[in-house]
């Protein structure tokens, strides 16, 4: 069986930064108050009236060469199905080495003590649904799928559209792509 590589694509041309994804994620995953697993970044460059904007919905990059998995002393941070990086709550000591190792600062300590972050809604994916953020997004900014499947929508988009990733210089090989 071919190994899937789950990726998420964020179409920055379409994202209006409405935060529907952020809130859908919070309610789907019961994210505690005051924390978020994903967030919106709005960048504006230039001086009035010559301006350029980019809005991104962003989250854990589920890196293929994930520094958090390397840094974890107990194996709690691990690669799950499709290369999705998960934290096994029962194995996490809350030592926070993974938090320090994450170039995207995508993790946080859950009030219950374990380290928490985006799971690409693998529980939904495993039953054939899309992640909550991707499902809710009113602008269809978010695309999720298996980049290793040449017939998938994400693979097609990665072939046909110009894209970038956040801080490629980290060498972490992120799997969150921004279509530009």
């Amino acid at each position: 069986m071919r190994n899937p590589r789950y990726v998420m694509l964020v179409d920055t041309r379409l994202c209006v930064g409405c935060k529907a994804c952020v809130l859908a994620c919070k309610s789907e995953n019961n994210v505690p108050d005051g924390y978020c697993r994903e967030w919106i970044v709005e960048d504006i460059w230039g001086e009035f009236p010559d301006l350029r904007a980019e809005i991104r919905s962003t989250r854990c990059n589920h890196c293929s060469n994930a520094p958090c998995v390397d840094a974890c002393p107990t194996g709690a941070s691990h690669f799950a199905l499709g290369g999705v990086v998960l934290v096994d709550h029962d194995a996490c000591t809350g030592c926070k080495a993974c938090i320090a190792s994450c170039p995207y600062d995508a993790r946080y300590v859950h009030p219950d003590g374990y380290v928490d972050k985006c799971t690409f809604c693998l529980h939904r994916v495993a039953r054939g649904e899309l992640p909550a953020c991707t499902t809710v997004c009113p602008t269809r900014t978010l695309h999720f799928g298996d980049a290793n499947d040449p017939h998938s929508e994400v693979a097609a988009l990665l072939r046909s559209r110009e894209w970038k990733v956040d801080h490629p210089e980290t060498g972490a090989e992120p799997n969150l792509y921004f279509l530009v």
Binding site: P4, A80, A126, D149
Partner: peptide, 23 residues
């Protein structure tokens, strides 16, 4: 929508299989 439901259900079944393997 360019994402077909069928396509995703396929992914889902692959996922389920792989999950049980992984477990």
């Amino acid at each position: 929508m360019s994402w077909s439901r069928r396509e995703f259900i396929q992914i889902g079944s692959v996922a389920l299989g792989a999950t049980s393997l992984a477990l």
